[in-house]
Design a binder for these strands. Structure first.
Lengths: 339, 339
DNA sequence: TTGTATGCGTTATCAG
DNA sequence: CTGATAACGCATACAA
C-alpha cells in the first residue's frame, strides 16, 4: 500500500509537504496541493491510522464494552453509540463482556492497548475500585448503566429504584392489592434496586410483598415462563404481575394465556424496558420506558467530549441520571375482584 | 503511560530483552524474565497496539460493516462475529453502513485506514465492481449476505430463491390456493429473489401471483401493518399471507387480528428469518430459519483464516451457501374453505 | 512556501 | 542469553 513517501517521490516534493496536504495544513501552494491530491487519488493512497495514532499520541476511536450483543437492549445501546461516533467520524471498537470478571477485564485492557481516547463500558462484574482505577487512566472513560459516586461525572445511568416505585404506584392506583413478581436471578444491582423501589412503595400503601411471591429466573422469555409457572404452582392469589423486564413479562404472559387467563381482564402484567418486543407481543405490554438510545447517545457525547478536552472542561451537567416513565398499552388495567 | 523503554530502564536491561519477554520470546534468562514481568506489573505497562501494528505491518483486528445495528437481525450477526473474534483474541472494529453508498464506502475506507487484516462487510448499496476491488486489496475481505461470482470464495450467503420456493411449496402442500404477499420496498436482491422463488413455485402448481396481490412497504412491523391494510382495502380474497420477513409478518398479523380474523384458522401467515420475535408474537410465527448466527460465525472464521494465510490456503469448501429451512409453529395451517 | 530532521513505541536483524 | 540499531508511516519543530 502506497505511503506518504511514495506520494512525495512521485510528486517530486518532500514528505512534509504531502503530510501538510493530507492534514489540510495551511502553508502549501495551491497548484502543489492540487497536484499532490491528484497523485494520491491515482495511487490509491490511504493514511495509516496506526502510524498516525502513534505519532500524534492519540487514537480518535471509541471503545465500547457491552454485555451481550444478541440482546436487543444492548443492540440498541450499541446503535445509539455508533450513530454519534459515525457522525463525528470516530471509529468504534466493540467488545462483549458477558458479565464475567475476566472477560470484562480483558475487553477493557485490549481497548486500553489500542489507546482509544474514549471508552464506554457497561460493567456489572467488575468492582467499583477497578472501574475507578480505569477511569483515572483515561479521561474519556464513561460508565453506562452504573453509578459510582466517586466518578459520578462519568456515569450515565437509570434510576431503577424510582422505576420500581413507579411501577408499584401505577398498579396501586388501579386498585391492585395482590402482587407477584418475576425477577432476574443475576446478582446485579438493577433487579434489587427495582425490587427495593417496589417494596417501599407497596409498604407505603400498607402492602407487603413476601419473598414467596417473588420468583427468580433468567431475565429472558423462557425465564419468565418458568418463574410464572412456579408462581402458579404455588397457588398464589394475585391480580397483577410485576416483571423485571419485558422479556420476562412476555414469557409470563405466554404462560398465563396458556392457562386460560385473560390479560388484562383477570390479571395485569407490567414490564420494564420498553424494547421492541413490548409492541409486538399480544396483548401489547404496558411497561416502563428505559431511554436506552438516548442514554447511549449521551454517553457517547460525554465520552468523546471528555476525550477531546482531556477531562477538563467539566460539562454543564454534573450528573446523568435518567428516570423511567410509564408507557401505557394493553396488558394492565383495573384490578379484577380478587378470587 | 509506561513504555517498553521505561521498563528496560527500570530493570536495567535493553529494549530488546523487554520486547522478548512481552512476546514470550525464547532466549531470555528465567530470573531476568521474572524480574521484568514483575516490573511490568508494577508500572502498569500495556503494549501499544498501534506501534505494534505499525512495525509488524499487520493489525490483527476484524473490521465489520453492517446495515443497522438496531435491527435484531444485524445484532445477531454482530453477536456471532464478535463471539469468534473474542475467542481468538481479535478486536472488532464496527461500523454501520445504513445501506447508503457514501456511508458504506466511508465505513470500509476507514477500516482500510486502520489496516484491519480481516473484514466482514454487509453491503447492499455498493456495486459488484467496487466490492471486488476492495476484495483484491485485502486478503481477509469477506462479504456476508451477498453473492458475487468473481469472488465466490469470499461470499457467505443465503439462497433466497430456494427460501421463497420452500415457502410456497409448504403453503401449497396445505391446500392454499389464494395468496397475497407483503414485501420490502427496498431495491435490493433479497426481496426479489424470494419473490422469484415464490412465483416460480406457484407457477409450477398453476397458480399466478398477480402484482396487485403484492404490497411493498418498509421491512418492519409498521410496514407489515400498512401493507396488509392496503391488501385488505383492495378486497383481496386469500387464505395465506407470504411475508418478506418476520417483522412484516408480525405487523400483518396485528392488522388481521384487529380486523377480527382468526389466525391460522381463517388465514395463515408465514414469515422469514426466524428472529426472536417469531417466538414472542401470538400466534407464534411459522417461518423460515435464516441461520444468521451460524453464517456470521462462518464469515468470521473465513475472514480470519484468509487473513492469517494471506488469502492462500484455499479452504476445503469453495462455497458458503446456506439454505433456509421451515420452522413450523402456530401461524400456518390447512387452507380454510375459500370465501 | 517548502524541505530536513527527529521521534512516537515496537519488533526484528544483527552482533556480541 | 543479551544489547545496539534500523526500520514502520507519519506529524511537526525548526531551517531555509
Amino acid at each position: 500500500m502506497a505511503t506518504i513517501k511514495d506520494i512525495a517521490q512521485a510528486a517530486g516534493v518532500s514528505l512534509a509537504t504531502v503530510s501538510r496536504v493530507i492534514n489540510n495544513g495551511p502553508k502549501v501552494g495551491d497548484k502543489t496541493r492540487a497536484r499532490i491530491k491528484e497523485i494520491m487519488k491515482e495511487m490509491g493512497y490511504r493514511p495509516n491510522a496506526n502510524a498516525r495514532a502513534l505519532v500524534t499520541q492519540r487514537n480518535p476511536s471509541l471503545g465500547v464494552v457491552l454485555a451481550e450483543l444478541a440482546d436487543p437492549f444492548f443492540a440498541t445501546l450499541a446503535y445509539g453509540i455508533e450513530k454519534v461516533a459515525r457522525q463525528k467520524d470516530i471509529q468504534v471498537l466493540l467488545s462483549s463482556g458477558s458479565i464475567q470478571v475476566e472477560t470484562e477485564l480483558k475487553a477493557i485492557e485490549t481497548l486500553l492497548e489500542h489507546r482509544c481516547e474514549a471508552m464506554i463500558v457497561h460493567s456489572k462484574a467488575l468492582d467499583d475500585e477497578t472501574l475507578i482505577d480505569f477511569a483515572s487512566q483515561v479521561p474519556g472513560f464513561v460508565l453506562i448503566n452504573r453509578y459510582i459516586e466517586q466518578i459520578a461525572d462519568r456515569c450515565v445511568w437509570l434510576d431503577n429504584y424510582s422505576g420500581g416505585a413507579t411501577m408499584a404506584r401505577h398498579l396501586l392506583s388501579l386498585g391492585h392489592k395482590k402482587f407477584v413478581m418475576v425477577s432476574s436471578h443475576y446478582q446485579i444491582d438493577d433487579p434489587s434496586e427495582r425490587l427495593r423501589g417496589i417494596k417501599d412503595e407497596l409498604k407505603n400503601a400498607g402492602i407487603e410483598l413476601p419473598d414467596s411471591a417473588i420468583e427468580y429466573s433468567t431475565p429472558d422469555q423462557e425465564g419468565g415462563e418458568i418463574a410464572m409457572q412456579n408462581l402458579l404452582a404455588k397457588g398464589h392469589d394475585f391480580t397483577a404481575v410485576l416483571s423485571y423486564n419485558d422479556a420476562m413479562a412476555a414469557g409470563a404472559m405466554s404462560m398465563l394465556l396458556d392457562h386460560g387467563v385473560e390479560i388484562p381482564q383477570q390479571i395485569s402484567v407490567m414490564g420494564f424496558d420498553d424494547v421492541l418486543l413490548s409492541r409486538y407481543c399480544r396483548p401489547k405490554l404496558t411497561t416502563l420506558r428505559y431511554p436506552i438510545e438516548m442514554m447511549a447517545v449521551k454517553a457517547a457525547e460525554v465520552a468523546l467530549n471528555r476525550a477531546r478536552t482531556n477531562g477538563k472542561n467539566k460539562s454543564l451537567e454534573d450528573t446523568f441520571k435518567y428516570t423511567p416513565t410509564i408507557v401505557k398499552r394493553e396488558s394492565v388495567t383495573h384490578a379484577a375482584d380478587s378470587k
